[in-house]
């Protein structure tokens, strides 16, 4: 295990930046690409995770624990957000009988 971790230093910090920006942009693409609100919601989770990964990488390379604590709080907020968001989606499905984002235009007047 220790030997394995010793070799990880070869990974440059930039590669974590590229990876998280790529994951974030895939999340943005998912929100724009899909019409199913649940898949859009999952793309938002993907974006949150991309940011989390970057925060952990920076805090590990800088040897500062604040970033990891912040990631912990982001996870907490994400869990609360998912509970409320999925409750909203189920409510919308009950009223509209669809989760198509295109059908939710009642506020557009």
């Amino acid at each position: 295990m220790q030997e394995l971790l010793q070799n990880v230093r070869l990974v440059p910090m930039e590669h974590y930046v590229w990876l998280s920006s790529l994951l974030f942009c895939i999340g943005v693409m998912g929100v724009l690409l899909r019409r199913n609100t649940i898949v859009m919601f999952m793309s938002i989770e993907l974006m949150l995770n991309a940011v989390n990964l970057l925060l952990v990488a920076f805090s590990a390379y800088a040897n500062k624990p604040e970033g990891e604590v912040f990631v912990f709080f982001v996870m907490v907020v994400a869990a609360a957000e998912v509970a409320v968001g999925l409750g909203l989606l189920v409510m919308i499905y009950r009223n509209q009988n669809t989760t198509d984002s295109q059908a939710l235009q009642t506020l557009k007047w």
């Binding site: 971790l5 010793q6 230093r9 805090s59 590990a60 390379y61 800088a62 500062k64 624990p65």
Partner: peptide
């Protein structure tokens, strides 16, 4: 600043 393998903050 440090290699992640040596940082023990996590």
């Amino acid at each position: 600043v440090i290699s992640p393998a040596e940082s023990e903050i996590g």
